[in-house]
Simulated assay, not measured.
Amino acid sequence: MDIWEELYREAKPYYHPTAVNDFIYTHNVVCALQSKSGKIYTGYCVEALSGVLNLCAERVALLQMYMDSGETEVQRLIAFRDTPPEGNGGMPCGACREAFMQYNQANKNMQIMVDYAKRETVTLGELMPHWWGTSVKPESD
């Protein structure tokens, strides 16, 4: 079993679209990521009618990783609905891309699965070649 199959198998059980109540819907997108240390973290989306409560599966997995280990660097990520991504599927939204870059600029090198059958990936840096944050200078104390 390769790492992509392992990531897929870790995330798959979380796919079971569920209405929590009249306002919140969950589990219709799932994700698994591999941290720099090699540990796997999972997440599932949480969508709410208000919109401001929405969390994508990718950000939930990122937060799980940070809460559990303090790590901020991701090696690999797969996200999908009921089947593995194919074609150009599994792409993180703009908010997720931004979150990964802000947590750690080294995440520009993380591999994102776009076609599971072909094992085709793209890096976050390829999706965000001119990220605005590279021009931000840290404040000194």
Rank of each mutant, 00 (worst) to 15 (best):
Glu5Met: 05
Glu5Thr: 06
Glu6Gly: 00
Arg9Gln: 12
Arg9Trp: 03
Arg9Pro: 00
Pro13Gln: 06
Pro13Glu: 05
Pro13Asp: 08
Tyr14Asn: 12
Tyr15Phe: 15
Pro17Gln: 09
Pro17Tyr: 09
Ala19Phe: 04
Ala19Gln: 10
Val20Phe: 10
Val20Ser: 11
Val20Ala: 13
Asn21His: 05
Asn21Thr: 04
Asn21Ala: 08
Asn21Gln: 04
Asp22Leu: 08
Asp22Val: 04
Ile24Phe: 09
His27Val: 01
Val29Tyr: 04
Val29Gln: 08
Val29Ser: 11
Val29Ala: 11
Val30Trp: 00
Cys31Ile: 03
Ala32Gln: 05
Leu33Gln: 07
Gln34Asp: 05
Lys36Ile: 06
Gly38Val: 12
Ile40Glu: 03
Tyr41Asn: 03
Tyr41Glu: 02
Thr42Val: 15
Gly43Arg: 04
Tyr44Cys: 13
Val46Arg: 14
Glu47Asp: 11
Glu47Gln: 13
Ala48Gln: 08
Leu49Gly: 15
Gly51Thr: 04
Gly51Ser: 12
Val52His: 15
Asn54His: 11
Leu55Tyr: 12
Glu58Ile: 01
Glu58Trp: 00
Glu58Arg: 00
Arg59Trp: 08
Ala61Tyr: 10
Ala61Pro: 13
Leu62Gln: 04
Leu62Glu: 03
Tyr66Ser: 11
Tyr66Met: 14
Tyr66Ala: 09
Met67Phe: 12
Ser69Lys: 11
Gly70His: 14
Gly70Val: 13
Gly70Arg: 15
Glu73Ser: 14
Glu73Pro: 02
Val74Trp: 02
Gln75Cys: 09
Arg76Val: 02
Leu77Cys: 10
Leu77Gly: 01
Leu77Arg: 01
Ile78Val: 11
Ala79Leu: 14
Ala79Asp: 05
Arg81Ala: 14
Thr83Asn: 09
Thr83Met: 10
Thr83Trp: 09
Pro85Cys: 07
Pro85Ala: 09
Pro85Trp: 06
Pro85Glu: 10
Gly87Trp: 01
Asn88Ile: 01
Asn88His: 07
Gly89Trp: 02
Gly89Pro: 02
Gly89Ser: 08
Gly89Val: 00
Gly89Asp: 10
Gly90Lys: 01
Pro92Trp: 03
Pro92Lys: 03
Pro92Ala: 07
Cys93Gly: 08
Gly94Pro: 00
Ala95Met: 11
Cys96Pro: 03
Cys96Gly: 03
Arg97Glu: 07
Glu98Gln: 12
Glu98Gly: 06
Ala99Arg: 03
Ala99Asn: 07
Ala99Phe: 08
